[in-house]
Simulated scan of single mutants.
Amino acid sequence: MSMNETYQPINCDDYDNLEIACMHHLVLSLQLKDGEMLEAKASDLVLRKNVEYLVVEESGATRELRLDKIASFSHPQIGTVVVSES
């Protein structure tokens, strides 16, 4: 995955669901577009150089996921969200 690809903002409703997940530090089941699956605690959303990232904690480590590389995420409180571009 090249970090030089043009960032594609995600749908506002999907972003709002990620904000809720971060506010409540929910552990999300995430599927990335490259097929990777992970369970991680949502902690923050950050913007760097016009690219948005979800900051998660996984196995004691912090990781940043580009929002446009997330295919879907789920949690019992918010259901399953299939991420779409805006």
Score class of each variant (00 low, 15 high):
75 H>N: 09
12 C>V: 14
35 G>V: 08
72 S>Q: 07
56 V>C: 04
29 S>V: 12
81 V>R: 13
47 L>E: 04
5 E>I: 09
21 A>H: 03
5 E>Y: 08
53 Y>R: 03
59 S>L: 10
39 E>S: 07
67 L>Y: 10
72 S>H: 01
41 K>R: 12
74 S>E: 03
15 Y>S: 11
24 H>Y: 00
1 M>L: 12
82 V>W: 14
45 L>R: 04
71 A>W: 07
12 C>G: 15
11 N>H: 14
37 M>A: 13
76 P>F: 01
70 I>R: 05
66 R>I: 13
11 N>Y: 12
36 E>S: 11
18 L>R: 01
56 V>H: 02
63 R>Q: 04
33 K>W: 10
16 D>Y: 12
84 S>H: 12
59 S>R: 07
9 P>W: 14
37 M>F: 09
5 E>L: 11
18 L>W: 04
14 D>N: 14
5 E>C: 10
77 Q>C: 13
18 L>Q: 02
38 L>G: 00
15 Y>G: 05
55 V>G: 01
43 S>Y: 07
35 G>F: 07
57 E>R: 02
78 I>Q: 08
67 L>T: 09
3 M>N: 15
11 N>V: 12
11 N>I: 11
25 H>A: 04
65 L>E: 08
45 L>I: 09
10 I>Q: 02
28 L>R: 03
4 N>L: 14
7 Y>L: 07
16 D>W: 04
70 I>E: 06
16 D>G: 06
82 V>A: 13
37 M>T: 06
24 H>T: 00
80 T>L: 13
17 N>C: 14
62 T>V: 10
4 N>P: 09
77 Q>P: 12
24 H>A: 02
15 Y>C: 09
14 D>A: 15
13 D>E: 12
32 L>Y: 04
45 L>W: 03
21 A>K: 01
13 D>V: 14
68 D>K: 07
34 D>L: 01
51 V>L: 10
32 L>N: 06
84 S>Y: 07
46 V>K: 01
84 S>I: 12
